[in-house]
């Protein structure tokens, strides 16, 4: 395994770690708006690390670019979908939680 392969592998692990953090955020955050943050940001960064890690291991520059293109499209998709969900949720009158303390925290 060459140095670049090792860096690529490390990036894949980091990406997977972000996906785990995103899922934990999804389970812990108080309302749909906060959960959007977990999915739209953390998961996208996870995908970015995975695409970059695979791009470093790709056989050709063109393949590497294609991987990054996939990430770009996914970013666009996430931004669009999260905008639509947030706008509709607000229009539907789903109130955002204004304050959330830790479990058992008096706040």
């Amino acid at each position: 395994m060459t140095g670049i392969d090792a860096i690529g592998a490390a990036l894949l692990w980091i990406g997977a770690g972000f996906f785990l953090a995103g899922t934990i955020g999804l389970l812990r955050f108080p309302d749909v708006y906060a959960r959007l943050h977990a999915l739209a940001k953390v998961d996208n960064l996870g995908l970015g690390f995975i695409a970059l890690g695979l791009a470093l291991r790709a056989d050709s520059l063109a393949s590497a670019l294609k991987l990054l293109l996939v990430w770009l499209l996914a970013l666009f998709a996430s931004a669009t979908i999260s905008y639509l969900i947030a706008r509709r949720a607000l229009a539907r009158g789903i109130e955002p939680v204004a304050e959330m303390g830790a479990d058992g925290d008096q706040r």
Partner: peptide, 26 residues
């Protein structure tokens, strides 16, 4: 709890689903 939460599934496929496909490709 809300319909909006169920819509989050669309986001999950767009990120986690794509990441899985990329990894399987490799």
């Amino acid at each position: 709890p809300t319909q909006a939460d169920r819509m989050l599934a669309a986001l999950l496929f767009g990120t986690t689903g794509v990441a899985i496909l990329l990894l399987l490709h490799e």
